[in-house]
């Protein structure tokens, strides 16, 4: 009797475990399904177009997989798009310039964002929430509108030039728009919150007694920042840099609106190929190469990070 009930209990527990496992699988399945439908499928379509040939039709590409008259399933991959992309200096220059602009923007955002995040994390309780809200506040307005606002601010008769003229610092309005300066400004302005948020959460978690311990052992505050605070908030720095760098490389709106005609960035080139030239295959090939470069960066960073953790 006792043994029987025990066996039953074990079986029921087993059933329960199986059911909870099924439940867990379901919970994971939903986001995976979402990712598959909205990220993987579009990516595969872009990948397909990158290997297709251009053709005057709608859509303006030849199909990659065809069913021929003599009942053969034909897969035709055109690598010419990629050789074209790598063969043209314009594209290479656009890639390099995008990486440069994104890299400098990321460094600037880090230099500006770290003190900001530090200040917020160390602010007294009530202030902290207010400051935090201020960082997130720009997201309440459309990104596009905010970039347009800079057009007004930086214009020849905008408030910034007016102020400089009124103070007598300059005698004729500065050309601020359509410059690299405007692009960097727009980039740092737009992506700063993405830098501040992960940094804030990393700095806020830092145990302050560690800094007291460092001081107690004879370490001056500046040195303690570099030997204790910085290494212990490294993860926040990595996360913030990735969150700024990746979208910045492919950024289209900011260089298009604030940059000059010679601001060559890959996002803009892809746009021109797609809508100006109607060359979908080359545009897709560019997008794939960009993706490969960025994936390489992320993997490299992760490798570095995990190696440091092991050490």
């Amino acid at each position: 009797m006792n043994a029987a009930t025990e066996r039953l209990a074990v079986r029921l527990r087993g059933l329960g475990a199986a059911r909870s496992q099924f439940g867990r699988a379901c919970v994971i399945l939903v986001p995976y399904l979402w990712l598959a439908v909205f990220f993987l499928v579009p990516f595969l379509i872009v990948l397909k177009i990158a290997f297709a040939n251009i053709q005057l039709s709608m859509p303006p590409v030849e199909p990659v997989v065809t069913w021929t008259a003599d009942k053969v399933l034909q897969l035709r991959l055109h690598f010419s798009n990629f050789s074209f992309v790598f063969g043209d200096d314009l594209y290479i220059a656009a890639f390099l310039n995008s990486l440069k602009v994104a890299g400098i923007s990321t460094v600037l955002a880090l230099l500006l964002g770290y003190p900001m995040a530090y200040g917020i994390a160390r602010a007294p309780g009530a202030w902290r929430n207010v400051l935090f809200l201020l960082v997130v506040l720009p997201f309440f307005t459309s990104f596009l509108l905010r970039v347009y606002a800079w057009l007004g601010l930086l214009g020849r008769s905008g408030p910034i030039n007016d102020l400089l003229l009124a103070l007598g610092i300059v005698h004729e309005p500065l050309q601020l728009l359509q410059t690299d300066f405007a692009v960097y400004l727009g980039m740092v302005y737009s992506y700063l919150p993405f830098m501040v948020l992960p940094l804030y959460s990393a700095i806020e978690k830092l145990d302050l007694t560690l800094l007291e311990a460092a001081a107690d052992l004879g370490c001056r505050p500046t040195k303690a920042f570099f030997t204790i605070t910085l290494p212990l908030t490294k993860e926040g720095i990595f996360a913030g840099c990735l969150l700024v760098f990746i979208p910045a490389v492919g950024e289209y709106v900011i260089p298009a609106l604030l940059g000059g005609p010679d601001t060559l960035m890959i996002g803009r080139v892809v746009w021109d190929e797609f809508f100006g030239n109607r060359d979908w295959p080359v545009a897709s090939a560019l997008a794939i190469v960009l993706l490969a470069i960025l994936t390489g960066f992320v993997l490299l960073l992760q490798r570095v990070q995990s190696r440091e953790e092991e050490a």
Partner: peptide, 16 residues
Amino acid sequence: PYERPVNMMFQSYALF
């Protein structure tokens, strides 16, 4: 603190 001839063992140990 960083110039005192004093050291402290913290309650939480505060190991780096």
